[in-house]
């Protein structure tokens, strides 16, 4: 790893230096046909921009209540679904221009962490990497390194069905990172976890993200506390309301929270800070009910 790709631990010493744009979602709309012939708008004018932060990875949360179109947004960013309007552009660093996103540019850690159940854990890491063009020797070395680093050595030759939930989650994330790419979306990674395990997952994502400054993790969640604890930016996804207070079809980014500017990003003691409690209260009690 070259020096430029290394991340600094802990909070940034001064103001963050924002470099090139890594991901741009512009005016994305998505409509689904309904049984009655009408269209259902899941997203409308959905836009967000993620820029490379010098010496830090990018950890962004898409926060919203159930039904806010988070999963649709995930699928469009990962190019698993085509938007009805708008576009998503991506780049792998300063050397490359922004270009339309393709399937495989963005890794996805799906809910319930699907793996290839017919492959042992180590093969779940090696085989997809090899099929994506990484030399077998390099893939094997990287896989063994990951297993060692993320406390999965003893599970290397186990079948995925023999893993605990936490182990499975780690393997699913590492499987995506084996591909020499920097973009990973995690779909509800805190869902169904107890508080201790939520802290473990936050630490894990932070640790993995901090392996490279270009690493960009987009977390899809409705868990306000965890989103605040892990992110540098939070985008609130939801629906606008008309004068009568009725929601307008199609979700979009309603509010952006820059946690670096708030002095909350990269702080292990974030939950002890008064601003953290204030923001959490604001999002939970004021913003969420409006979405």
């Amino acid at each position: 790893m070259d020096d430029q790709s290394k991340c600094l631990p802990g909070p940034l010493p001064g103001q963050p230096v924002l470099l090139e744009t890594l991901l741009r979602v512009e005016n994305v709309g998505k409509e689904f046909p309904m049984n009655d012939g009408a269209n259902f708008a899941a997203l409308r004018d959905f836009s967000l921009t993620i820029r490379n932060i010098e010496n830090k990875p990018q950890i962004v949360s898409l926060l919203g209540p159930s039904g806010a179109g988070k999963t649709t947004a995930l699928r469009i960013i990962a190019a698993l679904e085509r938007p009805t309007s708008g576009h998503v552009q991506i780049t792998n660093g300063a050397e490359e221009k922004l270009r339309p996103v393709r399937v495989g540019d963005v890794g996805v850690v799906f809910q319930r962490y699907p793996l290839f159940e017919d492959l042992k854990v180590v093969d779940n890491l090696i085989k997809p990497a090899v099929s994506s063009g990484i030399p077998a020797k390099e893939a094997k070395e990287k896989a063994l390194c990951f297993l060692d680093e993320f406390d999965l050595v003893r599970q290397g030759l186990a079948w995925p069905l023999q893993l605990s939930g936490g182990q499975r989650q780690r393997v699913a994330i590492l499987q995506q990172l084996m591909q020499n790419r920097h973009f990973v979306i995690l779909d509800e990674p805190f869902s169904g976890l107890d508080p201790v395990n939520i802290i473990n997952v936050i630490n894990l994502i932070n640790r993995i993200a901090h392996q490279h400054t270009l690493n960009t993790f987009i977390i899809i969640t409705h868990d306000v506390t965890s989103a605040l604890a892990i992110s540098d930016h939070i985008y609130l996804l939801g629906r606008e309301r008309n004068e009568k207070g009725e929601p307008i079809a199609g979700s979009r980014v309603m509010k952006e929270y820059d946690l670096i500017a708030e002095g909350l990003a990269y702080r292990p003691d974030i939950e002890d800070l008064p601003r953290f409690a204030e923001l959490r209260k604001e999002i939970r009690l004021t913003e969420f009910p409006r979405l």
Partner: peptide, 12 residues
């Protein structure tokens, strides 16, 4: 469907 999509994002 998730299995198909997992393979797609992994570049299969």
């Amino acid at each position: 469907r998730m299995k198909y999509e997992l393979a797609k994002v992994l570049g299969y």
